[in-house]
């Protein structure tokens, strides 16, 4: 009996300690958990609920409309146009700004002087406020008094109406997007490059890897794998989320030529006050982005982490 009691006691002690640890763990995790629930989970759930209603901002109530918002979206010229525009924008901006960021990073890394200067120079677009830059861009790309077209005229080229022409507006926004993203990617790539062990380059030299291209293929590119995966995902997300240049420069115009998903979401919700409809767009957007990220991660992750 006595023996059994002692055994029970010795067993109970760790159990109590375990319970205490659990409580402390929850306590420590509480701020983050609460913030997550309050800032992300609850709004997301509210969004999902809203997406199936006709709620309008300021309206006293709402009706359930089931999939009504979604069927309307599928027939909404503006929405379909904005999906197509966003896809084009991402397909243009993401690859080019990743490649450009990498190329400039390699040039800066390979160069001997002015590394800090160039890094700061190319990073500038990232820290500059797009809204503040909007006036500058609208002036630079001005069809008649803009410096860009003046420059083109000087070399005998007729410049375009960059932001006013439905044929060039998406291209112009894309170039601005690349300008904004390449510097960001550049800094990430520079960090990735400095993390590559110097020994690998020495080993490659010993192994007879002579040209810069072979060195890039043998060492640099594979070693940048995890960085590249991160950069590609971040850039894709940033490109999909394009909003501020559109809002400040074109507001989706002319005639929806630069309408993008987030801007549609914004105008539906906050200009047209159709919160339910806007929530439906947001929901589709969230699902699409999540799926895209998962696929990207699955596809690339296996190739870049050499475990």
């Amino acid at each position: 009996m006595a023996e059994a009691a002692t055994i029970a006691q010795t067993r109970a002690a760790p159990a109590r300690r375990h319970a205490g640890e659990t409580a402390v763990a929850w306590l420590l995790a509480a701020p983050a958990t609460l913030a997550y629930v309050a800032m992300i989970l609850v709004p997301s759930l509210a969004l999902v609920v809203l997406a199936f209603t006709d709620y309008e901002l300021g309206a006293p109530g709402f009706r359930w409309v089931g999939l009504g918002n979604f069927t309307e979206l599928m027939a909404d010229r503006g929405f379909l146009r904005s999906v197509a525009n966003t896809a084009l924008y991402v397909l243009f901006v993401a690859p080019v700004s990743v490649a450009l960021g990498l190329a400039i990073a390699l040039l800066i890394e390979g160069g001997r002087r002015g590394r800090a200067l160039f890094r700061a120079l190319f990073f500038l677009p990232v820290v500059s406020l797009t809204v503040a830059m909007a006036t500058a861009w609208s002036y630079i790309l001005h069809p008649t008094i803009g410096p860009l077209n003046a420059l083109l005229r000087a070399v005998g080229i007729d410049g375009a109406n960059w932001l006013g022409d439905s044929g060039t507006v998406l291209l112009s926004l894309g170039l601005i997007g690349i300008w904004e993203n390449a510097g960001f990617n550049l800094v990430l790539f520079l960090a990735g490059l400095t993390a590559i062990p110097r020994d690998l380059y020495a080993a490659a030299e010993m192994d007879g890897v002579k040209s810069a291209w072979d060195r890039f293929v043998t060492v640099t590119w594979p070693m940048l794998g995890p960085t590249t995966l991160f950069v590609v995902i971040i850039t894709t997300v940033r490109a999909i989320r394009v909003f501020d240049t559109v809002a400040t420069l074109t507001q989706g115009g002319p005639n929806k030529a630069s309408e993008v998903i987030l801007f549609t979401m914004y105008t539906e919700g906050f200009s047209f006050f159709r919160m339910g409809y806007s929530a439906a767009i947001t929901l589709l957007f969230l699902v699409a982005v999540t799926v895209l990220m998962l696929v990207q991660n699955r596809l690339i992750d296996r190739r870049v982490h050499y475990g």
Binding site: T135, L141, H142, P143, N161, L163, A247, T250
Partner: peptide, 19 residues
């Protein structure tokens, strides 16, 4: 008449005028 950027917040007409 030029087709200046089609947005409510665009200032391209004001920029050209002021210039």
């Amino acid at each position: 008449m030029p087709n200046l950027a089609a947005s409510a917040s665009s200032t391209q007409d004001l920029q050209a005028f002021a210039a």
